[in-house]
Amino acid sequence: MSDDYDSPWKEVVMHHFPEFMAFYFPQAHAQIDWSLPHVFLDQELAALSADAELGKRLLDKLVSVRKLDGDEQWVLVHLEVQGWRDADFAERMFIYNYRVYDRYRRPVASMALLTDENRHWRPTGFGWQQLGCTMQLDFPIAKMQDYGYVIPDLASQENAFALVSAAHLLAQSTRNDAHRRRIAKWKLTKMLYERDWDRQRIIDLYRVMDWIMYLPPALEQRLRSGIVQLERRSDMTYLSSIERIGMENGIKKGMEQGLQQGLEQGLEQGLEQGQRRGSADLLSLMLRARFGPLSLPVQIMLEDAPADLLNQWAKNFVHADSLDAVFRTE
């Protein structure tokens, strides 16, 4: 199973930023005045981090906040969610930090959530000393692998990111076992239904969980059948929204025989047999393996492309060193 962690993290951090900070960075959260609005500066950060050589990442955010200490000036929180080990990660944190400071001349607090599966990779600083000059950035990190304790104790965890962390960790541990993942996803879904949260919050969090914990179509349908039975025993009816979420997240891509036949028979044979959807899914898997998580526009382009264009992109992929090289049509 090929998992997409990029899009759900972008959504959940934007919608629940105070809870994110409270769960992963409680000391910083305690110093921020949450009665005042916080402002995301994504376009400004994009302009400062446009260099391709700075590398790929799951997510970066720049947020303007005010502190509780009465200081009138606002502070910039530079946040990274990093999903794989990267030897240049600490240097990138340093580069972004000084670029943001250079642009705004305001204090910048950089911090990172590391969601990779390597327990020992924990970069926390970058700098140097030369000829009596010291340059150093030390930044706090939260390591997803340290939050496994929330899984058996989820019933008592009120912060939404306990559930998000559980979904992420369970998705990683069940990557090669779809049946175990279905069971885990079902347990998390039932727990969501049991929460005394408002309807939209539950739907938003299911969207993230559904995105992270992808299931093959047959097992996804089995899960949906369970949800139908669950709703019949309760007063809550979220299934119509959940079905829509499934469509939006691409859970039903490769429905019927597309993905299975595309994987078993290969891209060329899948195209010859009219399995355009299976071919698109296989090409998506190949692109993720070489270039990392795909943006939403690229995913949509793959889903909508005709068979002959998929065939051309597959041929381009053989020698491509970038996504642009894959999608050229000359």
Rank of each mutant, 00 (worst) to 15 (best):
A52R: 14
D196H: 12
G292K: 13
L310T: 00
P306R: 15
P37F: 04
R182M: 13
L285I: 12
F17M: 11
E220I: 04
L154I: 15
R103L: 10
E268H: 05
S284M: 13
L259Q: 07
V81T: 01
L113D: 01
L163A: 09
Y214I: 14
T329D: 02
A320M: 07
R182E: 14
A142N: 02
R276T: 11
H120M: 11
Q157T: 05
Q275E: 13
L259W: 03
L170A: 06
G262K: 14
L188S: 00
G125M: 08
A162E: 03
E91D: 10
S156W: 13
N311G: 03
L137R: 09
T237R: 12
K143T: 12
H179Y: 09
A22F: 02
T189L: 11
V13L: 00
H38Q: 09
V63S: 01
N176Y: 12
F139C: 14
P152V: 08
I242V: 13
E220P: 03
L259Y: 03
S156G: 08
D69P: 01
Y96F: 14
I32D: 00
V164I: 15
L219I: 07
R195K: 14
M21E: 09
R66K: 14
T124C: 02
I251A: 12
A166H: 12
L323V: 13
E303L: 07
R277K: 03
L283D: 01
Q73V: 15
H38W: 07
G292S: 10
F17G: 11
E44L: 06
G262I: 07
A87F: 01
R57D: 05
L79C: 05
K253Q: 12
E272Y: 04
A142L: 10
F317E: 13
P37W: 04
D308E: 15
I203E: 06
L283C: 04
T329P: 00
G246L: 08
A166P: 08
Q129W: 03
E11K: 03
Q273C: 04
A178T: 12
E194S: 11
A171L: 06
P306F: 05
S2R: 13
L296T: 13
Q27M: 08
F20K: 06
E91Y: 04
A160C: 07
F317S: 12
Q27P: 01
A289E: 11
S7M: 03
G125W: 03
S35G: 12
S241R: 07
N176E: 15
H120D: 14
L192A: 02
Y5F: 08
Q269R: 15
L170D: 02
V12K: 07
L323T: 10
Q273M: 07
S284V: 07
A320D: 05
Y96R: 13
A28Q: 13
G55Q: 09
S295W: 09
D116N: 14
D42A: 08
D6F: 02
D177A: 15
V13P: 00
Y147L: 08
R66W: 11
A218P: 05
I32C: 02
G262F: 06
D88L: 10
K315W: 09
R201H: 10
M111D: 00
E303R: 05
L58V: 05
V39T: 15
L54V: 03
G127H: 02
E53S: 08
D86V: 02
